[in-house]
Amino acid sequence: MINISKETKNKEFKKLLLGLIVIGVICISLFSGCTQKTEGLPIVLVGRDSTSGTREFFFSHVMNSENFSETLQEKNSNGGIYQTISQTPGAIGYVGLGFLNTDVKALKINNISATVANVLAGTYPISRDLYMFTKGEATGAAKEFIEYIQSSNGQAIVEEEGFVPLVDSQPYNSSGKTVTGSLKIGGSTTVFPIAEKAKESFSKIYSDVSITISSTGSGAGITAVGQDTVDIGMSSRDLKSSESSLGLVKYIIAKDGIAIIVNPENTYVDTLTLEQLKAIYKGDISNWNEFI
């Protein structure tokens, strides 16, 4: 071993320290280089995945079938969009009315706020029907379940979940009916909460029926009912021409408005016109400060 005197050791230590300081300074400068302040509040676009009924509706009614901006982030459920919006100050997204809550702020469209009353009155511009499909006319448990949802009992659930009920529905009459067996339901993530809640009370009337509900998206629901893998397909859009050959029967179970939501911290806008909304989703407007 080589003997090293105390002095050289100290010198070495100083050099070492110096080196470490230089490295530290450069790391910090690199780090701060990455964290440059941005002007205003950049818009983060959030939307549904490409097979969603909500997205297809949005695409045809708001975008007029023009392409979305490339930066649109995809979530595969309404809840996913909601989650991101509530966490991200600059984000904007679209969800069914039923998903509105205090963690997000719903924007007015053409100065009309997204409420059940406005959808019923027909003044809120972005609204649509919600569907259930069966292969051929509904029979047995499927028939009763759909009747139950369409009844005033079911429509109460629809309203409770924040959707828009059908007009003049009758109370459900279960007298003299027995429903047994199993019922498989699958499809739209928008319709899912209605079906899930309806299942809870439906099972109370008919205790012998077992219902399984999966939330996979409108496209998958329609495909599944066409292939007989489920008994009822839920959908937030009507059949497309390519699906018309499946032999499905359509039941409208509720109406839904599509709410445009932003983070509550976003103080730049409260209302948008359809044109502005389209411009945002096309990427022509990329920062919220353009609205000042």
Partner: peptide
């Protein structure tokens, strides 16, 4: 994301 929602075939 897309597999669960795609129309089979």
């Amino acid at each position: 994301i897309e597999m669960g929602e795609v129309a089979t075939g």
